[in-house]
C-alpha cells in the first residue's frame, strides 16, 4: 500500500535537486543577470564525477594538426584549419600550420578524440552548462 509511504514522504525532504533555483525564475535572463551581480544565488548542481565528460579543452601549442580527431569524430564537430604564417625572411616560402577548431554545439561528448590524440592535446573538463541560443557563439567554439 502506498498510503503509508506517501504520509511518510510528506514529512521527508523532497528528493529533487533544486538546481538552479527552487522555482523557475520569472525571467531566465534576469535571473542570470542577478546571479552575475551577486544578488541571487544558484543552488549548486549535483557534483560531477572525476571522469565526467564535459566541454572539450584544447591545448593549441602541443597540437601537431594530424587530423586523427577529425577522422574519428562521430558528430563531425571538429574541423582542420590551415593557417599561413608569413615568413620572417624575405623570399622564403610561407609556413603552413594546421590546427583544429571544435564546434561544441555539435559535440556529442564521446571523448573519442581525446582517446585518439597522439599528443594528448585534448581533454575533457567538467563544464556542462553550455546552453546557448546561438550554436556558433564564441563560448561554443574551441580553437
Amino acid at each position: 500500500m502506498m498510503m503509508h509511504e506517501v504520509l511518510k514522504l510528506l514529512f521527508k525532504k523532497p528528493f529533487t535537486n533544486k538546481f538552479p533555483a527552487k522555482y523557475a525564475p520569472k525571467s531566465t535572463y534576469g535571473f542570470i543577470k542577478l546571479v552575475k551581480e551577486g544578488k541571487a544565488q544558484i543552488i549548486p548542481p549535483v557534483p560531477t564525477p572525476p571522469k565526467f565528460r564535459g566541454k572539450l579543452k584544447y591545448d593549441r601549442e602541443s597540437c601537431v594538426g594530424c587530423g586523427l580527431c577529425v577522422k574519428v569524430c562521430p558528430a563531425k564537430a571538429i574541423e582542420l584549419v590551415t593557417y599561413k604564417e608569413e615568413p620572417k625572411e624575405e623570399g622564403a616560402r610561407p609556413k603552413i600550420i594546421r590546427k583544429i577548431r571544435i564546434y561544441i554545439g555539435r559535440c556529442v561528448y564521446c571523448s573519442q578524440c581525446v582517446d585518439i590524440c597522439p599528443r594528448n592535446s585534448l581533454s575533457m573538463t567538467d563544464e556542462f552548462l553550455l546552453a546557448n541560443e546561438d550554436k556558433l557563439a564564441k563560448e561554443l567554439i574551441v580553437e
Binding site: V6, L10, T16, Y23
Partner: peptide, 13 residues
C-alpha cells in the same frame, strides 16, 4: 504542493 511533497518532489509554487 502537498501532493508534490507526498510524491517526494518540490512541486510548483
Amino acid at each position: 504542493k502537498l501532493a508534490a511533497h507526498m510524491q517526494w518532489r518540490v512541486g510548483p509554487p
